[in-house]
């Protein structure tokens, strides 16, 4: 503004006020957001496809992520052969290691040596005899709830891969090993590493 604006005849304890207009850009942005908000609310409340809502967005994300992760796997059969076979897949054991470290390590130790939960590296099992029992314990829980049931928590493939990962810990050397608990387990069955047709 080139000239000094008009001072109003208001005066309070020596404070005066200018009669300046409110800035144009201020009005513009204020109205812009009012108009935007109106349309946004209309779209949101009418469940418009542009704003699908939390649930739908979430379901889509789950679907997309699951597809991407398990594209090559399909649906795994939870049986001894599958469990044993995947212990030989380095790629998928690295994958399952992550599930283990976020959910199991706090009780079984970062390398499965056992803390509150039993040692998973030795030849003894508290509720385990065969490789299938690992899957059962993970899915349904054990020890009166001290070992939680993870069946609801993970995708079925994750349960299978986690079973294989736990099975693969047997015979490894943890930093701190808890004393053996339970009874001696059968040796795991042998199975060839899984083959994927991704090389074609």
């Amino acid at each position: 503004m080139p000239h000094d604006p008009q001072v109003l005849d208001h005066e309070y304890d020596g404070i005066q006020e200018f009669d300046n207009p409110t800035p144009g850009w201020w009005h513009f942005l204020f109205w812009l957001f009012i108009v935007f908000s109106f349309f946004y609310v209309m779209m949101d409340f009418s469940a418009s496809p542009f704003l699908p809502g939390y649930k739908k967005k979430y379901d889509n994300a789950v679907l997309a992520a699951t597809m991407k992760k398990f594209e090559t796997l399909g649906d795994l059969e939870p049986n001894a052969t599958t469990f044993a076979s995947f212990t030989k897949s380095e790629e998928w054991m690295n994958y399952a290691a992550s599930t283990f470290s976020s959910n199991c390590a706090s009780c079984h130790g970062p390398d499965g040596g056992g803390v509150v939960g039993p040692n998973l590296t030795d030849d003894y099992g508290k509720n385990l005899k065969k490789i299938d029992d690992i899957y059962t314990v993970i899915t349904k829980g054990a020890a009166g709830g001290a070992m939680p049931a993870w069946g609801q928590r993970f995708h079925p493939n994750d349960l299978v891969l986690l079973t294989s990962y736990v099975a693969s810990l047997r015979g490894t050397k943890p930093q701190i090993a808890k004393a053996p608990e339970g009874e001696i387990m059968e040796p795991w069955p042998d199975a060839p590493a899984p083959v994927f047709d991704e090389g074609e």
């Binding site: 109003l8 304890d13 404070i15 005066q16 006020e17 200018f18």
Partner: peptide, 20 residues
């Protein structure tokens, strides 16, 4: 609104803006 114009000894920029 009280202390800043007091300290600066200047009139407040815009009465209209105050209202809105």
């Amino acid at each position: 609104y009280y202390f800043l114009p007091k300290a600066a000894n200047r009139p407040v920029f815009s009465y209209k803006l105050s209202i809105i």
